[in-house]
């Protein structure tokens, strides 16, 4: 399974990647902003994307929009501090698959990762 983790925080990328590793997912691709993530997305087929919202160069919402133009079905999970109703609605309109608010507990992240790894494997 190919998973893309996008966050300008190295710490958050490490936490998500480590959690994916606990489900046997290795070789995770990481990007520190939306622009680099889009570059990776254009080069390789991904089965699952975890993305932050607030990032330099291209934010997570813009990345989501670009991803949906290229692949309407790949699960994209936003992991972000952006939790207002308006922001969540904007992400839903662009086709976000799921949402996890920062700060998150290790258990909440694990549950979210397990849900979407299982879903992606079933496709």
């Amino acid at each position: 399974m190919n998973v893309l983790v996008v966050d300008d925080s190295q710490m958050t990328r490490m936490i998500i990647t480590k959690t994916l590793g606990s489900f046997g997912i290795t070789g995770v691709a990481e990007a520190e902003d939306g622009q680099k993530a889009l570059g990776l997305f254009e080069q390789k087929q991904f089965d699952l994307v975890f993305s932050d919202w607030n990032m330099p160069n291209m934010n997570g919402l813009e990345l989501l929009g670009e991803i949906r133009k290229k692949n309407p079905t790949v699960p994209v999970i936003m992991i972000t501090t952006e939790g207002s109703k308006a922001r969540v609605e904007a992400a839903i309109t662009l086709g976000v698959s799921d949402y996890l608010l920062k700060p998150f507990t290790p258990v909440a992240l694990r549950d979210k990762v397990q849900k979407w790894v299982t879903t992606a494997k079933a496709v």
């Binding site: 925080s9 190295q10 710490m11 607030n54 972000t80 501090t81 939790g83 207002s84 920062k102 700060p103």
Partner: peptide
């Protein structure tokens, strides 16, 4: 190093984001 600075920055981001809500 970069990881230390990044961690402090991400905590600040989460505090600011949570306060904003």
């Amino acid at each position: 190093d970069q990881l230390v600075c990044d961690t402090v920055g991400e905590f600040t981001n989460m505090i600011a984001g949570t306060a904003r809500s």
